[in-house]
């Protein structure tokens, strides 16, 4: 299935801003992190359609997954 992955802040280094990637059915957020060689503890926030999802969230074909390292400001 096709997942659009958007990366932010330091996750973009040596990777990309946005890309369409292929994953097997029932892939989770962790599978995407593994494919991108992002250590799971580095993940700050994962969102789909503006809603937070967990690392265990099972992705569906055509979804856009946004991945952020731990960031803050204010």
């Amino acid at each position: 299935m096709k997942i659009t992955v958007k990366l932010f802040a330091g996750f973009r280094n040596d990777r990309f801003k946005v890309d369409d990637l292929e994953f097997p059915e029932n892939a989770t957020v962790v599978d995407v992190l593994d494919a991108l060689k992002i250590n799971s503890p580095e993940l700050g926030v994962a969102m789909i359609n503006g809603r937070h999802v967990t690392r265990e969230h099972v992705l569906a074909d055509g979804e856009t997954l946004s991945l952020f390292p731990k960031v803050g400001g204010g």
Binding site: G44, P69, K70, V71, G72, G73
Partner: peptide, 15 residues
């Protein structure tokens, strides 16, 4: 990671 890495590199505007 927020105060040691995110804020120094990108500033508050990372938001």
């Amino acid at each position: 990671p927020v105060t040691g890495e995110g804020l120094p590199i990108y500033g508050t505007n990372v938001l």
